[in-house]
Amino acid sequence: MNLKAKKSKLHCEKHQEELKLFCKTDKKLICLICATGQQHRSHSLMLIEEAIEFYKEQVKSSFESLTEKESEIQKIEQEQKESISGVQEESHNLQSQITSQFAELHQILTDKEQRLLGDVREEEEKIIKSMEKNLQGIQENLKSIQEELSKLQDQTDHKNGLIFLKTYS
């Protein structure tokens, strides 16, 4: 055996023997002397090469299982992202629809407001025209009464009673 091969082998710290066995119970490498000792006598033991193959198979199996789970989770993740996008798109469409409908309602209300304001102004003009006509008649009547009062005042202001009686009759 050459020097490099000997150095690459692992040795028991307790017995300085080459580690050739693996204790499955304690999950550690042991030498032949340790295997026959009290501490490992009832434990499940196997050759290092067998243990390496056994645990490589377990790791490979775990790796394959995790790879499969990873693939499933990535699929679920993609589905969730698509669901999120779908909800966002629906929400944006609904918001656009609401905005559009309210814009229509605002226009309808604005049109109705303008019609009602126009109707009120029109009615106001009719009423005011009628009232101004009445006011003109009242003012003419008042003017006529004031002219009559002025005449009567002039008559009563005459000092001469005969002239007063003459104009009065």
Rank of each mutant, 00 (worst) to 15 (best):
M46I: 03
K75W: 08
S65H: 12
M46G: 04
S44K: 13
S65Q: 13
L21N: 03
S44A: 13
E13F: 02
A35R: 09
I48R: 11
E13I: 02
K27Q: 15
K27V: 02
S8I: 10
Q16F: 09
A51Y: 06
S62D: 15
S62P: 00
Y55L: 11
C34M: 05
L21C: 03
T36I: 07
Q58M: 11
L45M: 02
K69R: 12
T25L: 10
K60Y: 07
Q58V: 06
I52E: 15
C23G: 04
K69N: 14
S62F: 01
E72W: 00
D26F: 02
L45C: 00
K75Y: 11
K28H: 01
T25G: 09
L32F: 06
Q38L: 06
A51N: 08
V59S: 11
G37E: 05
H11E: 11
L29K: 08
Q58G: 07
K56Y: 13
K14H: 10
S65F: 10
L21D: 03
E57I: 06
F63L: 15
K20I: 06
S71Y: 06
K69Q: 15
Q38G: 03
K9P: 03
K56W: 10
L19K: 04
F22R: 00
A51P: 04
E49R: 07
Q38W: 08
F63I: 01
I76D: 13
K75D: 15
E17I: 02
L19D: 04
S42A: 13
L45E: 01
K27L: 15
E57Q: 14
H15V: 02
T36L: 10
S62Y: 07
C31A: 03
Q74A: 14
K75L: 14
T25I: 05
S61F: 08
H11Y: 14
C12N: 08
K69G: 05
E50N: 15
L10R: 12
G37A: 10
S8E: 10
S65D: 15
E57V: 05
E18D: 09
Q74F: 08
E49D: 10
R41K: 09
K60L: 09
I30L: 05
T25E: 12
A35C: 04
T25M: 11
E49C: 02
F22V: 00
E68R: 10
H40D: 07
E70I: 03
K28S: 08
K56H: 07
Q38D: 09
E57G: 14
C23L: 02
K24F: 05
D26T: 00
H40P: 04
L21P: 06
E17Y: 05
Q16W: 08
L47N: 12
L45Q: 07
K27H: 14
I33S: 08
I52S: 13
Q74N: 15
Q16V: 07
G37T: 06
K27W: 09
E72L: 06
L47D: 14
V59N: 14
S44M: 09
Q58I: 12
K56Q: 10
K20F: 01
E17K: 07
T36K: 14
E57L: 10
K60H: 07
E49W: 02
F54I: 03
E49Y: 05
K69Y: 01
E18M: 03
L10K: 12
S65G: 10
E57C: 07
T25W: 03
L21T: 00
K9E: 13
C34T: 00
S65L: 13
E50R: 12
E70A: 08
L19Y: 01
E53F: 04
R41G: 05
H40R: 03
K14C: 01
Q58K: 15
D26A: 04
K75H: 13
A51L: 03
E72Y: 00
